[in-house]
Simulated scan of single mutants.
Amino acid sequence: MPVSKDEFDQLHPCDFYTADELLEGDRMYTVYEIARLLQGLDPDADIDRETEDVLLDWAIPWIMTNADDLVVAEPRSDDEPGFYGLKE
């Protein structure tokens, strides 16, 4: 249920990194690594499953929004996720 803005001490702008600001041009990243980077974490940071699920809620729309600036690589094996990187 929606709540009143008055219930929050502070409201922040909804600014996100651009793909160029977040990703290195010569690297490919999984959605999990992108999720960590969006929160200022190391892409290999060890986080619990519940936190990772929340971070994915941010990463998936970010990938869709920045799709024009990204390339996609299919998984190298069946037990690996796909990868995303900057278009050159």
Rank of each mutant, 00 (worst) to 15 (best):
P2M: 12
P2T: 09
P2K: 13
P2G: 14
V3S: 11
S4M: 09
S4R: 14
K5F: 12
E7C: 13
E7Y: 12
F8I: 08
Q10Y: 08
H12V: 08
H12F: 14
P13V: 02
C14A: 12
C14L: 12
Y17V: 00
T18Y: 02
A19I: 05
D20F: 01
D20W: 02
D20S: 03
E21P: 01
E21Q: 14
L22N: 01
L22W: 01
E24Y: 04
D26W: 08
Y29L: 05
V31D: 07
V31E: 07
Y32L: 13
A35P: 11
A35S: 13
A35K: 11
A35R: 08
R36I: 04
R36G: 04
Q39L: 06
L41S: 05
D42T: 07
D42L: 11
D42Y: 10
P43N: 07
P43K: 06
D44Y: 06
D44P: 02
A45H: 04
D46C: 12
D46K: 15
I47D: 05
I47G: 03
D48N: 10
E50P: 07
T51W: 06
T51D: 10
T51R: 10
E52C: 08
L56P: 07
W58F: 14
W58N: 09
A59C: 06
A59V: 05
I60T: 15
P61W: 09
W62N: 10
M64Q: 14
M64K: 15
T65Y: 13
T65K: 13
T65G: 08
A67N: 12
D68T: 15
D69I: 03
D69K: 15
V71Q: 13
V71R: 14
A73E: 14
E74Y: 09
E74Q: 11
E74W: 06
R76C: 10
S77V: 01
D78G: 04
E80M: 10
E80S: 09
P81N: 03
P81K: 03
Y84T: 01
Y84S: 00
Y84D: 00
G85Y: 01
L86K: 00
L86W: 00
E88P: 14
